Simulated scan of single mutants.
Amino acid sequence: MDSLSSNVVDHHGFYQTIVGTKSNRVYGTILCRGDISAKNCSLCALNSTRVASNDCPKSRDVIIWFRWCFLRYSNDSFFGEMQETTVATANYTDIEDDPSLVLQGIPFMSGVASAASVNSFMFHTEVLNINQSEKRYGMAQCTRDISRKDCIRCLDGQLDLSRNVNENKKRWETYGYNCFMWYNDYQFYFHNGSTLLLSGEFFEFWLFINYNCLSYQFEIH
């Protein structure tokens, strides 16, 4: 899986590859968050492959979520197939005090999702201006092997989950196999564009979110 981390920057933050033959064939994908620098993308990708090698050395289906990148590999082909698995994170003590803000959050993120699905890199950031002193920030992204229709379907599924468990939160994030959403009361992303930054500041920070190691079968090199 070394080729994932070594090629992801040259492919604008998203890369897929197939290695091996027959029963030992492995399908791999890596996605970097669209707002980070190329340096941070490369290092996050490298770190995720190290976690996979160290913690899941013989697993045949591995999913690694970092805040800045996402790694998956499997001996079953999953390219182009949208899957609705989602991990939701939030600070459950960080509640919106104003009910009117609760009513604005999910519709705002629905617009962010719609914009991400039609952008060429399937990535979008946006600001909700509530008043002169208060804002909310949203970001959404899909893996670029799925269709635009599946991208919005994936993000809508995450919105449904957030509507049930995160609607009254100031800050929440959702991580899936094919799509991701972030909502916050401060600007957590690095720029307002829609492509991977090829330059920019280097931050030695890639918060680990979660991982799955499934069905032990082969060893990754």
Rank of each mutant, 00 (worst) to 15 (best):
D35M: 06
F123M: 01
E81S: 10
V62G: 13
A140R: 07
N192F: 03
V127K: 05
L159F: 01
R67Q: 12
L207S: 14
H221Q: 14
W65D: 08
A38W: 05
N54T: 15
F14M: 08
L128Y: 04
G138Q: 01
T21I: 08
M1W: 07
M1Q: 10
G200M: 02
F66V: 03
D185P: 10
L103I: 10
Q141Y: 06
C44P: 12
M181I: 07
T21G: 03
S114K: 06
F205E: 15
D2S: 13
E126N: 09
C213A: 09
L103G: 06
L159P: 12
F205P: 05
V165E: 07
R136T: 03
G80T: 09
N75E: 11
S114N: 04
F121T: 03
G200V: 00
T93F: 05
G176R: 01
D94M: 07
Y27P: 05
D150F: 02
Y73H: 13
I18M: 06
G105K: 14
T29H: 04
L128P: 05
C213V: 11
S100A: 09
G176C: 02
L159H: 03
H221D: 12
A38C: 04
I220Q: 12
L43E: 14
D35G: 07
E134G: 03
N184L: 00
Y211L: 11
A115G: 02
E204S: 14
R163H: 08
V112Y: 03
A90P: 06
F202W: 12
W68S: 12
M122V: 00
Y183C: 03
Y73A: 09
W172V: 00
S110H: 03
G111Q: 04
D35E: 11
F205D: 15
